[in-house]
């Protein structure tokens, strides 16, 4: 479904990602791990189009993403969440989902049209279901900025899912969560997969990555050092070395 071919990204003299090859199968939960600065977030930014690659190709469902702007990639079916939460703080929870839901709906509108905002109509059930899914059913009319941290994380996941992506990129969704919240998150990610989404999960929280992924890629200094099933990765010598070089689990 997603194919990354010899992808590189330089920031000045720094090589954040170098000659990376990846293939993600449809329906997988695909983990990307690695020490800090190994290029994981850069990879998400390259796939979602926040900045262009220096060299290399990204193909999604046979289509090259390289020349597509970020919003066009969303419309092509690639959505993401952010490591540092980026909600629309002045919109309500309901509106956050509503604008995201509608921006991929109408092929001509690209987020612009005079469709009236109503908390009814054809999308109401869909959004109510999303609120239910995120455990925010009673928070629909709250401003996003008034939500607690964990709720903001859940809303961001729901908002990304609201664009109805085929591929969902999650950039450290468990950062700052306690164990129970992490388990909750794992359950939600599995549910999204069941709805037909392929998921790329970038994460430091090993419990989550090892628990729900089908395959894992390990990055270090922008290159792939290992790839395989969670059990194999856990035993991999080069992975252990890469992480031992770090002072903490990150």
């Amino acid at each position: 479904m997603l194919e990354v071919k010899s992808l590189s990204k330089h920031f000045g003299g720094v090589q954040a990602v170098r000659e990376l090859d990846l293939a993600v199968n449809a329906g997988d939960i695909f983990g990307v791990i690695g020490p800090n600065g190994s290029g994981k977030s850069t990879l998400v930014n390259l796939i979602s189009g926040v900045f262009p690659a220096t060299t290399g190709e990204i193909h999604f469902q046979g289509q090259s993403l390289s020349n597509l702007s970020p919003h066009a990639r969303v419309r092509a079916g690639v959505a993401r969440t952010f490591q540092n939460i980026r909600l629309f703080p002045g919109l309500t929870v309901w509106q956050n989902l509503w604008v995201a839901r509608n921006s991929t709906e109408d092929t001509r509108a690209e987020g612009i049209s005079f469709r009236w905002f109503r908390k009814s109509g054809p999308v109401k059930n869909e959004i109510d279901a999303m609120l239910e899914f995120s455990g925010l059913a009673d928070k629909g009319d709250e401003l996003a900025s008034n939500l607690a941290f964990g709720e903001q994380r859940r809303l961001e996941l729901a908002r990304a899912a609201a664009t109805k992506p085929r591929l969902l990129l999650l950039d450290e969704p468990a950062a700052g969560m306690n164990q129970e919240e992490v388990r909750d998150l794992g359950r939600r990610i599995r549910e999204l997969r069941q709805q037909g989404m392929t998921i790329i999960l970038i994460e430091h929280v090993m419990e989550l990555v090892m628990g729900i992924t089908d395959r894992i890629v390990v990055l270090n200094f922008g290159s792939k050092i290992a790839e395989g099933e969670p059990a194999a990765i856990r035993k991999d010598k080069s992975v252990q070395e890469a992480y031992l070089g770090q002072s903490e689990d990150g």
């Binding site: 919003h71 952010f82 980026r86 956050n96």
Partner: peptide, 15 residues
């Protein structure tokens, strides 16, 4: 949405 958080707006499909 664009005014409040332009990066996220683009990545929610808004031009």
């Amino acid at each position: 949405a664009v005014a409040q958080q332009d990066v996220a707006a683009r990545l929610c499909g808004m031009s």
